[in-house]
Computed example of a mutant assay.
Amino acid sequence: MPEGDSPTVARRRVRLALREARERADLTQLQVADEMEWSLSKVIRIENGDVSISPNDLRPLLAYLGIKDKPTVAALVADARIARTRQRQVWYQKPEFRENLTDATRKLIEYENEAAQMRSYSVYYVPGPLQTPAYAAALMTRFEDELSESQRERRIEARRLRRESLLARAASGDVRILVMVDESVLRRTIGGPAVFAEQLRELLRLAETDAITIRMVPFSLDASVTNNASFDLLTLGEGEVLYRETGLGDEMIEDRDTTAKHRARYDKVWHEVADEAATITFVKSQIHSMEQAQ
């Protein structure tokens, strides 16, 4: 067990080990629930990371799933203890945010606070934590028919808080942020020329101060990362998690094969697209165009 792990990382390690062991044993969640005399919902919540399993519950479960190696059992029990360490209530778990953010989004925010690296790919708009308040507000107007004014306000506030936390960690060297955006993201004037120019200037500032490393996928390059989804890959401890969203919803994926495929595709395209210098030159030209349009 790596020293200094947070409850978030420790809980993730336990639940992934349990899920993978159950799948290797070809057992369903219902079969596990019946054997342990638990409710099915308890098993689901443990595997989803919604609750932490106690060491007393973990030991017999590990035995049932065939995990008997003493060092492995000891490490997982130690992780279970760390996972149950009481933390101060974080802002995204407060009722006003729990009611207005999806489960996947709250899980993403939790992992953003622990990630050592974050690789972001966007096909439509500037990634959430990098958005200026005005850009975020303009983008949120597109959901007036789906979200109430209160819901939109909470989501805008959540983006502001995410931004503060993530960029503070980047400034201190705790996380490295790689951003890859489709050329359309740097052309789509969300909010109008003034708002969009401000957003582009902010991206330029972040890139020039090394808070982020940004590259653009130009229209001329025939290499798509995904067909229709933006995503974030976050490196946590020994593995990665994938947050993926489309216009219809979002999801958090922790399957190792899926995350590995997205990472391989991301790395491949990263080396084919416009580099940082060319991307910054393009951003500057777009800022000039927006200023001329005002």
Rank of each mutant, 00 (worst) to 15 (best):
E114F: 09
N100S: 13
T72L: 01
L108E: 06
P60H: 08
S52N: 12
D50R: 09
R106Y: 11
E37A: 07
E110D: 12
S39V: 06
I109L: 13
N113K: 12
N113H: 13
E96I: 01
D50H: 11
K107E: 10
S39D: 12
L101M: 13
V43W: 04
L40Y: 09
A63K: 11
L40A: 09
L108W: 06
L40S: 04
L65K: 08
S120W: 12
K68M: 07
R119E: 08
K42A: 01
T72Q: 04
S41L: 03
V43T: 02
A83T: 12
A116I: 10
N100F: 06
V123M: 14
G49L: 00
F97I: 07
E112T: 07
I46V: 10
K70T: 14
D69P: 00
E114A: 13
Y121W: 15
A83W: 09
K68C: 06
K94R: 15
T102N: 07
N113V: 04
K70I: 10
Y121K: 11
Y121A: 08
E112W: 09
A74L: 08
K68S: 14
I53G: 03
F97N: 11
R86V: 15
E96D: 08
A74H: 03
S39A: 10
E37C: 04
T85K: 14
Y64T: 12
Y92S: 11
T85Q: 15
Q89C: 02
I53Y: 00
D79M: 01
N56H: 06
R86M: 12
W91F: 04
R81H: 08
N56K: 10
K94D: 08
N48Q: 13
W38R: 02
S41H: 03
E110Y: 05
A74I: 05
T85A: 14
A63S: 12
D57Q: 09
V123L: 15
T85C: 05
A80G: 04
V123S: 13
Y111R: 14
Q87D: 09
K107N: 11
E37K: 12
Y111C: 11
Y92R: 05
I82P: 00
Q87R: 13
L76H: 03
Y124T: 14
E96Y: 02
L61M: 08
Y64I: 10
E112P: 04
W91M: 02
Y92F: 15
N56I: 03
I67N: 01
N48I: 00
I46T: 01
A74F: 02
N48V: 02
E99A: 15
R98F: 06
P60N: 08
L101S: 04
K107F: 02
A63N: 07
A116N: 07
A74S: 12
N48K: 10
V77L: 15
E47F: 00
E99W: 08
K94P: 07
V90W: 05
I46Y: 00
D50L: 07
L61Q: 01
Y121I: 08
K68A: 07
G66Q: 03
I67C: 03
E99N: 13
